Computed example of a mutant assay.
Amino acid sequence: MYIYLLKNPAHTVLYTGITNDLERRLYEHAQNLGNASRFTGRYQCNLLVYFEVCADAVQAIAREKEIKGWSRAKKKALIATTNSDW
C-alpha cells in the first residue's frame, strides 16, 4: 500500500491519498484532470511530490489520516525530506 501526496502546478493545493497501485492511481488522477466533480480535477492535482510504502491497508489508512490532519507547513516539511526541489 502507498500513501501519496499530489500538488497542482501552482503549488497552492496538496492532496493526500492511498492506493495499492501507485502507477495506476496516478494515471487515474491524470485522466480526471479538469473534472470538476473530483477534488484532484477541480484543483488540477496531478503532480506526485511524495509517497510512502506501508505494510498493509490498516497502516496506510492510519498514516493517511495522520497526514491529512497536519498543517500545510508540516506537510511541506515532510515532502522536503525526500523531494527538496518540489
Rank of each mutant, 00 (worst) to 15 (best):
D56L: 04
D56G: 14
T40I: 03
T40R: 07
V58M: 09
Y50C: 05
A30E: 09
L47D: 08
L33H: 10
F51A: 12
N46Q: 12
S37T: 13
R24L: 08
L48T: 14
Y27L: 01
C45A: 12
E23G: 09
Q44K: 14
N46R: 14
A36Y: 02
L47E: 13
V49H: 04
E28P: 05
R38V: 00
F39E: 04
G34K: 10
V58H: 09
Y43V: 03
A36P: 00
L48N: 12
H29R: 08
R38C: 09
N32H: 10
E52W: 09
R25M: 00
F51K: 13
Q31P: 00
N46I: 00
A55R: 14
A57Q: 11
N46V: 00
V49P: 02
V49M: 06
Y43N: 11
C45D: 02
Q44C: 03
V53P: 03
F39N: 09
V58W: 02
V58D: 15
Q59F: 01
H29V: 11
N46C: 12
V53S: 11
S37Y: 03
E28N: 09
H29A: 02
E52Y: 11
A36D: 11
A36G: 06
E23N: 13
V58R: 15
A57S: 11
L48Q: 12
Q44N: 14
E28I: 01
Y43D: 02
G41C: 07
A30L: 05
V49F: 02
F39T: 15
L48P: 03
Q59T: 15
V53L: 10
E23M: 01
N46W: 02
V58Y: 05
A36T: 14
L26I: 09
G41W: 02
E52A: 14
T40L: 02
R42H: 12
F39H: 10
R42L: 03
N35M: 04
Y27R: 11
V58C: 08
R25T: 07
E52D: 11
A30T: 11
A57H: 10
F51Y: 15
Y27S: 10
R24Y: 05
D56R: 11
L26D: 07
N35C: 08
